[in-house]
C-alpha cells in the first residue's frame, strides 16, 4: 500500500498550459481591478459632490481646483471615467487626505502587519483543525466525539468579532493576562490569532472530520486494515492527507477571507495593518487611501485564489494525470 513518491516533471505541453493559464488569470485580474474601480467610481457619484469626498471637507480652494483639473469634473462623465481609470493604472491614487503621503505607498507600508496576522491566523487554524478533525472523524459516532462535534457546530455560529470582544473582556479586562493593543509584543499576537482561528477552525474541523470518516470507510483502508496495517498509520498516512486535500479549496477561501475579514479583528486589537487603515480612512472618508486599500486587497485575494487553484491541480494526482 506504500505509494512511491516520484518527483513530478511537467511535460512541454503542460508547461504551455501553465503559461496560457497564467496569462489568462493576469487578464482576469486586470478586469477585476477595473470593475472594482468602476464600482467605486459610481459609489463616488452617488455620494453627492465627489469633489468634497476627494479633497476633504475643509480643502483649500487651490486643492479643489487641482482635483477638478486632475479628474476633469467639468467634462462629460465618460471622460471623467477614463481619466479616473487611467490615473489608477498609472498607480496614482492621489494623496492621503489625512497624512498627505501618496496613498499607495501608505497602504503598502501597513501590509506586513496584515500578512503576519493572516499567517498567524491560518497557522493556528490548521494547528487546531487537523488533529481535531482527524480525532472527530475517526469514530464520528462515539459518544464523547458527538458532544465535541456539537460544540464545534455551536462555535461555528460565533462571529469572529464577537469572540474577539468576549476574549478581550475575559483575558484583557478581567484577568489582565494579555496586553490588548498593537503588535510590538509577541504576547499581543495570541488573542488576535485565536480570534481569527475561532472563526475559521469550526468549519474546517467539520470538513476534515467528514472527509476522514468517509476515507476510513473506503475499501482500500478496509483491505489494508484486514491485512494488519496499524490503525494510526492508516489514519495519518492515508486518511488525513486525503482529507486535507479535500479541504484545500476551503483552506484557500479562508486564507483569502483572512485579508478581507481581518478588518474588525485589526480594529479591535489596534493591529496596525491594512484593516485598521481601512477603518480609519472610512471614518474620515479618506477616499484615495480607501481606493488603494481595495486595490491591494483585491490583488491579494485574487492571487490567493489563483494559488489555491494551482495547488489543487498540483496536489491531486488525478488532476495531474488528466492532462495529456
Amino acid at each position: 500500500m506504500k505509494s512511491s513518491h516520484v518527483i513530478y516533471q511537467l511535460s512541454q505541453h503542460q508547461r504551455w498550459r501553465v503559461g496560457v493559464k497564467a496569462v489568462r488569470s493576469l487578464g482576469k485580474l486586470i478586469i477585476l481591478l477595473i470593475s472594482i474601480t468602476t464600482f467605486m467610481f459610481f459609489a463616488l457619484r452617488m455620494a453627492g459632490d465627489p469633489i468634497i469626498v476627494l479633497a476633504g471637507e475643509n480643502a483649500s480652494v487651490e486643492l479643489i481646483e487641482e482635483i477638478k483639473k486632475q479628474y476633469g469634473f467639468d467634462r462629460p462623465l465618460i471622460v471623467q471615467y477614463i481619466l479616473y481609470i487611467s490615473n489608477i493604472f498609472r498607480l496614482d491614487f492621489g494623496e492621503s487626505l489625512s497624512t498627505g503621503q501618496p496613498a499607495l505607498s501608505y497602504v503598502l507600508s501597513q501590509l506586513p502587519a496584515t500578512l503576519l496576522l493572516a499567517a498567524l491566523g491560518m497557522a493556528v487554524t490548521l494547528a487546531i483543525s487537523i488533529p481535531a478533525g482527524a480525532w472527530l472523524g475517526m469514530k464520528p459516532d462515539a459518544w464523547g466525539r458527538r458532544v465535541m462535534a456539537g460544540a464545534v457546530f455551536f462555535m461555528q455560529g460565533l462571529p469572529g468579532f464577537v469572540t474577539a470582544l468576549l476574549l478581550i473582556q475575559v483575558f484583557v479586562v478581567q484577568l489582565m493576562w494579555f496586553p490588548s493593543l498593537g503588535y510590538s509584543q509577541v504576547k499581543a499576537w495570541i488573542l488576535p490569532s485565536i480570534s481569527l482561528a475561532s472563526f475559521l477552525a469550526p468549519k474546517l474541523i467539520r470538513m476534515i472530520s467528514a472527509n476522514v470518516s468517509e476515507a476510513m470507510r473506503e475499501e482500500y483502508i478496509r483491505t489494508a486494515r484486514s491485512v494488519g496495517a496499524p490503525g494510526w498509520s492508516l489514519l495519518w498516512r492515508e486518511a488525513v492527507p486525503n482529507a486535507i486535500l479535500g479541504a484545500v479549496a476551503l483552506i484557500g477561501t479562508q486564507f483569502a477571507f483572512l485579508f478581507a475579514g481581518a478588518v474588525i479583528i485589526e480594529v479591535l486589537f489596534l493591529w496596525p495593518g491594512i484593516g485598521l487603515l481601512l477603518f480609519r480612512s472610512a471614518q474620515v472618508l479618506d477616499f484615495p487611501v480607501l481606493q488603494a486599500t481595495a486595490f491591494i486587497i483585491a490583488i491579494l485575494v485574487f492571487s490567493v485564489n489563483a494559488m489555491t487553484n494551482m495547488a489543487f491541480e498540483f496536489l491531486d494526482p488525478r488532476m495531474r494525470r488528466a492532462a495529456p
Binding site: K28, L32, S35, I36, F39, M40, A43, F259, A260, G261, V263, L278, F279, A282, Q283, L285, L290, Q291, T293, A294, I297, A298, V301, F302, N305
Partner: peptide, 13 residues
C-alpha cells in the same frame, strides 16, 4: 473574486 466586505465598507462609508 470581489473582496465583498471591503467593498461594502467603502461604499457605505
Amino acid at each position: 473574486a470581489f473582496p465583498n466586505l471591503i467593498i461594502a465598507i467603502i461604499v457605505v462609508a
